[in-house]
Design a protein around this nucleic acid. Structure first.
Lengths: 228, 228
DNA sequence: CCTACCGATCGGTAGG
DNA sequence: CCTACCGATCGGTAGG
């Protein structure tokens, strides 16, 4: 279907490209990174809405304002596009996590005290909710629910990022366990906690429900015991 | 779509089915239910492993020992097969939940006391883990992670079953909240709890990790406060 | 339930 | 990045 009208077919002497015309955006070839980013955002949105398997590369191209073959100029194949979405999502999550912790630590220091494990926990949960539910939050849900479609190599690449994201939580949960604020095996508790948080992408409706601060407070009360 | 072959339209004297030929397995037509079940199990396994979009109806047919066109004798289309997997999973989950509660109530009665909310909670969590991780546990993960591929009508059908499954938990969580064993909004706690439990299908390895009883005990300790 | 098939779509590529 | 295209696969069906 959709046989393209080949308007510009025969002897068309290369449109002589005079190198002085437009100083910026020369042949719209090497200014991408922009276009690549648009592709990633479109892919993330569609992969999340419809699933990887139900989204065609044509869908993505159209959503990014391109023709059907063009995504393959930026990505080797459809799976590489999926992997890039996930890596992009994890990198931005890592950044958000680090900056949230830095800010909190700095604020505490300005008040002349250090962050308690409980406060660390709150900051991490809050940052995680932002990653999951905040603006540009299609990337991580795609990672959570489409990893089956990755090759083994791509999967272990994404897992590296995920491990370093989770590693930040480990000492915090251990400290909470040591203080008696968190019961049971911290590793198991971490799994349960991530499950509880990640599931929110399935039901959270920003229009009708609580704010991310409300959610965070709930999680803290639900998972942590009072210290006394 | 799907124009039914109106075989029995005009003057077609009903294909006289001689009731005496072969007593069992007459024309291998009406002894299915067996084959249908095999299709469902194969579909559940493949949908879970590879995802709905990445699984072809040919894959499923082969796994069930059929030819490529045969699944469509049992199911109108691929989506109907997916919907059937989910409904099958939810019906069996509802049965397991009901029988677990019945057994527990009967046992308590035999000992001359009633089930506490905490004991109810434990029974429900344990039954849920069995649904998620026990034998024949491909159906529910498919429901959890492939509902995007359902039509709106199919989705609301599945949601009816899911709602009645969750409804059993509501009074239990309310009682736990009333007694101070569960903090925060019970509805929100239910979401978090299901997230924590359902996530286990992503990491639980029966070979290397705790038993379902261990998991259940962990969840009880993690989510419920001591009553004193 | 099988055989034999069809139309559509899809991932991907050559060449510019 | 577009044009023009290909081979493969896929969901689904007619007819028995």
């Amino acid at each position: 279907m959709s046989i393209e009208t080949d308007v510009s077919k025969p002897s068309q002497a290369e449109p002589v490209r005079r190198a002085r015309g437009r100083p910026r955006k020369a042949v719209h070839e090497r200014d991408d990174g922009n276009r690549r980013q648009e592709l990633l955002r479109a892919a993330a949105r569609l992969f999340r809405q419809q699933g990887f398997g139900a989204t065609s590369t044509r869908d993505i191209a159209t959503a990014a304002g391109m023709r059907s073959g063009s995504p393959f100029y930026h990505f080797e194949n459809k799976e590489a596009l999926l992997a890039a979405v996930m890596q992009e999502g994890m990198k931005s999550a890592l950044q958000r996590q680090a900056s949230a912790m830095d800010t909190a630590v700095a604020q505490a220091a300005a008040c002349g005290h250090t962050l308690s494990a409980r406060e660390c926990f709150r900051v991490l949960v809050r940052s995680h909710f932002e990653v999951l539910l905040g603006p540009d939050s299609d990337f991580i849900p795609v990672m959570l629910y489409e990893w089956r479609s990755l090759s083994a190599a791509q999967r272990s690449e994404v897992n590296r990022l995920k491990d370093s994201y989770e590693a930040v939580w480990v000492p915090v949960l251990k400290a909470l366990h040591a203080s008696g604020e968190l019961h049971g095996d911290p590793a198991l508790a971490r799994m349960m906690l991530f499950g509880a948080l990640n599931w929110s992408v399935q039901w959270y409706d920003p229009a009708r429900q609580a704010t991310l601060d409300d959610l965070t407070a709930s999680v803290v009360h639900l998972f942590l015991k009072r210290l006394e």
